[in-house]
Design a protein around this nucleic acid. Structure first.
Length: 644
RNA sequence: GCCGGCAUAGCUCAGGGGCUAGAGCAGCUGACUUGUAAUCAGCAGGUCGUCGGUUCGAAUCCGACUGCCGGCUCCA
């Protein structure tokens, strides 16, 4: 708050400005120049976005964003969000407003209590009303207000949802209001300076959304949109959405003949030969890594007495997500997880501490009933397999075992080119089993394993599984989207439920610790992500067809066939396109199928026992000896290279 | 599960209370014999998602169901 003390702001050019504590970023901008003050949208202090009107009370690295800064986007979208609410209120004054979005990195949204769903026509009307409001170019004003004043204000406006929301703000927190024109909303900011700085808006879609995210509560009507400082940026954004659609695995999968879906088994993929090839190649890869690291594969039943699921606790917690069958008047459940079956193998015989760690891997098919509306392509299915494994070890071995799992996982992601990796340590959730001492120890073990190996991670407080903390692995795909893949979870609870024990050095029984580990996660989901990451252009080792032989005319079919045979006997997955079509036609088709290598053969090649090599990158490598290309493809596949 | 949308040929889509439901691509047949992203011609292909209702008549209007899509919620 304004005081006699001063603070020091370090500007991007390295210069330092000394200003009174409580000076606003807008005042700082004015001090630098009127032009900058006019164009300023927002600011940041030590990387934290700050509103132009929020008094600064500490020193730090200071930057101002103008309409031209990409960083201004969050400010602009947040302001467009208020303009959206304003527009809806102007069109339908009786509508109650709820709240906007937390994350404005891409979109904005607002929820309304509206008697029906918004239609496409409504959106058009709202959008043009928003443009009118933007043209008014109102200034966004920030106002600190007491809880009582705020409650009174919103009650007087008939905004009962807002009054409810007010109650969600923790005691003692400064309550701020942002106004533009006659519109006022409870808001933390930050906002742009003026509405007119938002140059391009688009409303994207509508949907229902539960008030406060409560499934048992009221459903409101939500509108999503996006906004930018220029029409060009908006166009680029929409273009990116289009590009993302083109690599959507639900589109590419059928196009590349990888998989299909059928009403007879909703949300359960049918992998065609090419898709199954990739599916199995992924599993083979993990199998190889398992073998190299002392994990032993087991095969366990699909359908087990429901009794087992009572023991494991899954029946109580996840009954609604399980499939059941009754045979011989006996109740069975289709397995949704492998862990209980692994516990049964572990307890099949007396175990010594000398046997530990025991590492069981399992690619068993799992079935989980996902509620309708929750399923999507390969990423959320009802029938799937995980690259699952469970390690049974002594408490002392936990750190080493966790580290082993982490290092295998990192190696695997590298193979796929998932270079950007975020590791999260998820700690005890509110609903959990076991004592606090147990959790203290488990969380400490995981953290120690990561820190011991110098691995950077973030803590995701409260997001652990109910039976133990976990390390989650998030990757970023080729177009920057984040996906959670692998997980390493500590479990002290299942060994307890199953009464697992090993005989220790002291001759007494001890409880083993269980570590759940998946690297790809669900193989189905991983394949979906991989399709989008690669846009269907798989690395040579995963390409169902690695090379297609293209004779330029029927006259060269014999040579083409001989080429294919040579490739095949050299373990290259080769296809011969001997249709009577022009070369361009066949190239186009192979290209659309993203076949890594097109091998053109005509008179010249036949005479010299070569093939004209055209990788799917489109370059022309010219005529190469057949043996060379066989060797090249074989080498790329064997090394699981991503090169062509 | 909730809010909303969609469902016509293998695919992308047009049509629309009425008489024989269309196009392009893909498929098949034939001609062409092809040199780095689509040769030409012909043929075939449909219970207009399923069930029910309204109607003289429904692919078209209404309802239910199923599946899919965008969100919400959930995800051991």
């Amino acid at each position: 708050m304004p005081g006699s003390e001063s603070i020091h702001l370090t500007l991007p050019d390295g210069s330092v400005r000394e200003v009174a504590c409580g000076t606003t970023p807008l005042a700082v901008a004015e001090g630098i120049g009127p032009r900058l003050a006019k164009d300023a949208v927002g600011a940041e202090l030590d990387g934290q976005p700050v509103d132009l009107r929020t008094p600064l009370d500490s020193s730090g690295q200071f930057r101002l964003f103008t309409t031209k800064s990409p960083e201004a986007g969050d400010f602009l979208r947040h302001s467009a969000e208020h303009v959206l609410a304003d527009a809806v209120k102007r069109l339908w004054p009786e509508v109650e407003i709820d709240a906007g979005r937390q994350d404005h990195s891409e979109k904005f949204q607002y929820d309304f209590r509206f008697p029906r769903a918004f239609t496409a026509e409504d959106l058009e009307k709202i959008e043009s009303k928003m443009r009118e409001i933007l043209a008014e170019n109102s200034v966004f004003e920030r106002e600190e207000i007491s809880r009582e004043q705020a409650a009174e204000l919103f009650a007087s406006m008939g905004e009962t949802l807002k009054v409810d929301r007010l109650g969600d703000i923790p005691e003692g927190e400064t309550i701020t209001l942002y106004r533009h024109g006659r519109f006022a909303d409870l808001c933390r900011g930050p906002h742009a300076q003026r509405a007119g700085q938002v140059k391009a808006i688009k409303l994207l879609e509508t949907s229902g959304a539960y008030f406060r995210g409560d499934e048992s509560g009221e459903m409101l009507q939500r509108i999503y949109g996006t906004a930018f400082g220029s029409a060009k940026e908006l166009d680029d954004y929409l273009e990116r959405l289009e590009q993302a659609k083109l690599r959507d695995h639900r589109r590419l999968g059928p196009e590349l003949d990888l998989f299909s879906f059928n009403e007879h088994a909703p949300a359960s993929p049918f992998f065609h030969p090419k898709g199954a090839f990739i599916y199995n190649a992924l599993i083979d890869y993990v199998r190889e890594r398992n073998r190299d690291n002392g994990y032993h594969e087991v095969v366990t039943p699909q359908i087990l007495d429901v009794d087992l699921w009572h023991t494991s606790g899954h029946y109580d917690n996840y009954r609604d997500g399980m499939y059941f069958a009754e045979v011989d008047e006996r109740q069975y459940a289709v397995k949704p997880m492998n862990c209980p079956t692994h516990c049964l193998i572990f307890s099949n015989t007396l175990r010594s501490y000398r046997d530990l760690p025991i590492r069981y891997a399992d690619f068993g098919r799992l079935h989980r009933y996902e509620r309708s509306g929750q399923t999507s392509g390969l990423t959320r299915v009802r029938s799937f397999a995980q690259d699952d494994a469970h390690v049974f070890c002594t408490p002392e071995q936990v750190e080493v075992e966790v580290l082993l799992a982490v290092s295998i996982i990192r190696g695997i992601y590298e193979t796929f080119g998932f270079d950007e990796l975020l590791i999260e340590l998820s700690t005890r959730p509110e609903k959990r089993l076991g004592s606090d001492e147990l959790w203290d120890r488990a969380e400490k073990d995981l953290a120690a394993a990561l820190e011991g190996a110098g691995i950077e991670y973030e803590v995701n407080a409260g997001d652990g599984a109910f039976y133990g903390p976990k390390i989650d692995f998030q990757i970023k795909d080729a177009i920057g989207r984040s996906w959670q893949l692998g997980t390493v979870q500590l479990d002290y609870f299942l060994p307890e439920r199953f009464g697992l024990a090993y005989i220790g050095e002291d001759g007494a029984e001890h409880r083993p610790v269980m570590i759940h580990r998946a690297m790809l996660g669900s193989v189905e989901r991983f394949l979906g992500i991989l399709i989008e990451h690669t846009a269907g252009a798989f690395p040579v080792w995963l390409a169902p067809i690695q090379a297609v032989v293209l004779p330029v005319s029927d006259k060269f079919h014999d040579y083409a066939k001989a080429v294919q045979d040579t490739l095949t006997s050299g373990n290259v997955r080769a296809h011969l396109d001997d249709r009577s079509e022009k070369l361009g036609y066949k190239i186009r088709e192979a290209q659309l199928q993203k076949v890594p290598y097109m091998l053109v053969v005509g008179g010249r090649e036949q005479d010299s026992e070569t093939v004209a090599v055209r990788p799917r990158t489109g370059e022309d490598l010219g005529a190469r000896p057949l043996a060379e290309i066989v060797e090249r493809i074989r080498e790329l596949a064997a090394s699981r290279s991503r090169e062509l």
